[in-house]
């Protein structure tokens, strides 16, 4: 039985502009369904011109709330993604790991800001 598939973001969203969280959710729904069944997924960014963190948070960042890092690393691959978009995806992934791993850490960041010792905007 075939257990890998390729998903095209362009096909799912229907546009080269991947900017809305709602469109990211459509990608997430397909990815999550496939990963849940143990499928290997190749996610193609072919023909995607613009990405936002809001889109990627919904499409991919959200996966870290449902699957562990090892599952995602072993089952999900990306291709045809531009270098700067890859850098954005990496930041989204790292933010998502923190977000789901340790929600208290976000609260700690809050307290640090209150203390006025953070100036890294």
């Amino acid at each position: 039985m075939r257990n890998n598939l390729e998903l095209s973001i362009f096909k799912i969203v229907g546009s080269p502009l991947c900017v809305a969280s709602g469109d990211g959710q459509k990608v997430y729904d397909r990815l999550a369904a496939a990963l849940k069944e143990g499928w290997s997924v190749m996610l193609s960014f072919h023909n995607i011109a613009t990405l936002t963190s809001a889109f990627l948070n919904a499409a991919i960042g959200q996966l870290y709330g449902q699957f562990n890092e090892n599952q995602i690393r072993s089952l999900l691959k990306v291709q045809d993604i531009q270098p700067d978009d890859l850098a954005l995806l990496k930041r989204v992934v790292e933010t998502a790991k923190q977000y789901f791993k340790d929600p208290q850490k976000f609260d700690q960041a809050v307290r640090e800001t209150l203390g006025g010792d953070s100036d890294d905007a």
Partner: peptide, 10 residues
């Protein structure tokens, strides 16, 4: 369920 916190920083 959906993380955030990057938009304004970017």
């Amino acid at each position: 369920k959906i993380p955030g916190g990057l938009g304004l920083k970017l």
